[in-house]
Simulated scan of single mutants.
Amino acid sequence: MTNDIIAALALVREQKPLVVNITNFVVMNTTANALLAIGASPIMAHSQQEMTEMMQITGSLVINIGTLDSVWIERMLFAVEQANAYNKPIILDPVGCGASLLRTQTARTIAANANNLIIRGNASEIIALAGETSQTKGVDALDSSDTALTAAHYLATHYQANVVISGEVDYVVSATRVISLKNGHHMMPYITGMGCSLTALTGAFAAVGDSTGLAATAILAIVGEIAAKHSAGPATLQLNILDGLYQLSADQIRQHLRIEVVSSL
C-alpha cells in the first residue's frame, strides 16, 4: 500500500489532472491552493451552461455542500448527471449532514445518483448520511471516527462507494476492507477547510486511478504531521501544509506512514 500511495503521488504530479470543484465559498481558495500544491489543476466551475463541456475534459468532479441553497442543489445534480455520462469519478463531501434536513436529504440524493462515488466526511456526517443518529454541532463532528465504521460500511455497500472517515484516526472503508491511518496532528481541525482540502485532493487522486481515497488521506495526514513540527499555531500550520504538499517526497511517506488493514473480507 505504501508503494501504491507513492506511485499515485507521482502520477498526479506527472499528469496534473484537472479537477472540477463545485464547492463552498468559505474554502474555494484553500482547496484550490491544496490542489495546485500537490500538482493538480483546480477549476471552480458552477455554471450549468458549461458543465457538460467541463465533464468531457476533467479527471473528476468534487461536490462539497458546505454553502448549500436551492440553486446550488440544481447545479450539483446536473453536474452528477454529466459526470456519470462521461464516466468520471465523483467525490462527495456531505458538509454538515445531520445538522439540517436540507443538508441530509441533499447529500443522500447526490449519493444515490452518483456512479463511481467516493464519500469523504467526518464521523458525524457519515453516521447521519447512513440514517443513524449522530452528534453534530453545525459542521463539526462530535462523534469519534471509529463509531462511524458501521455507517461507513453501510454507505459503501448501499451506494457501491468508497468511504473516507476523517478524524483523530482516519479510516478508508470499502465493501470488503477497512484501513486505518494514524497520522495527522491535533492542530489540523483548527484550520477552516482541512476536511474540504482532503476531499479536493481525493478528487486529484481519483483522476489518476485511486478510487479508494487512500492516497489523499495518507498524504494530507502525513504532511500535516510534518508541518506541525515547524508551526507555532494554525496560521503557520496552514502555510506549512501547502509547502509540505509541494515538497513531499517518497522517503517522507515511507518514514511517517502509519497504516493498518483493520479488516478484510
Rank of each mutant, 00 (worst) to 15 (best):
A40W: 01
L61A: 09
I165P: 08
V20C: 14
E225R: 06
G39T: 11
G203K: 12
Y86F: 15
G59L: 07
D243G: 10
V26Q: 05
A218Q: 12
E168T: 09
I165F: 07
I118L: 13
S70G: 03
T52M: 14
I118A: 04
N33V: 02
Q15H: 13
A7G: 04
I253G: 01
Q135D: 03
A123R: 00
Y154M: 15
V95F: 00
L11W: 06
S263I: 06
D170W: 06
V169G: 00
L61E: 00
T52Q: 13
V12E: 08
Y246F: 15
S231Q: 03
S41C: 15
R177E: 15
I118W: 03
T104K: 15
R254M: 09
S197Y: 06
G167D: 04
Q49W: 09
C97V: 02
G209K: 10
G213D: 04
Q252W: 13
S166M: 09
H158T: 13
G96M: 01
E225K: 12
G244W: 13
G203Y: 09
T23L: 02
V80H: 08
L201A: 09
N116Q: 14
E260F: 02
T147E: 15
L18N: 10
T67S: 11
A112R: 03
A107Y: 00
D243C: 08
S41G: 11
I179R: 12
Q82S: 09
I43P: 00
K16R: 14
L102W: 06
S144T: 14
V27T: 07
A40G: 11
A8V: 01
V26R: 06
T30Q: 13
G167M: 02
A45D: 11
A130H: 04
T192G: 01
L248K: 02
F205R: 11
A128Y: 03
E50Q: 14
I57S: 07
S47L: 06
D243V: 05
D210A: 13
A215L: 13
D170Q: 08
V173G: 12
Q48E: 14
A85P: 03
L61Q: 07
V208G: 04
R258A: 09
T104Y: 00
V163T: 01
V223A: 04
D170K: 12
S231Y: 00
T52C: 10
A10W: 04
V139G: 06
I43F: 07
L237N: 01
A206P: 03
S249P: 14
G209A: 12
L198R: 00
G224L: 09
V27S: 04
G167C: 01
L9Y: 10
I5V: 14
N87Y: 12
V12H: 04
A228D: 09
N183W: 04
S70V: 03
T30G: 00
P94E: 01
P42H: 14
R13A: 07
G195S: 07
Y171R: 14
N116W: 06
A37R: 13
L68M: 02
T52R: 14
Q48K: 15
V223W: 03
A7F: 07
T236L: 05
S197E: 03
E168I: 10
S41Q: 12
A207P: 06
E168N: 08
G59W: 02
M194W: 03
A221S: 15
D243F: 03
L102K: 11
M187T: 06
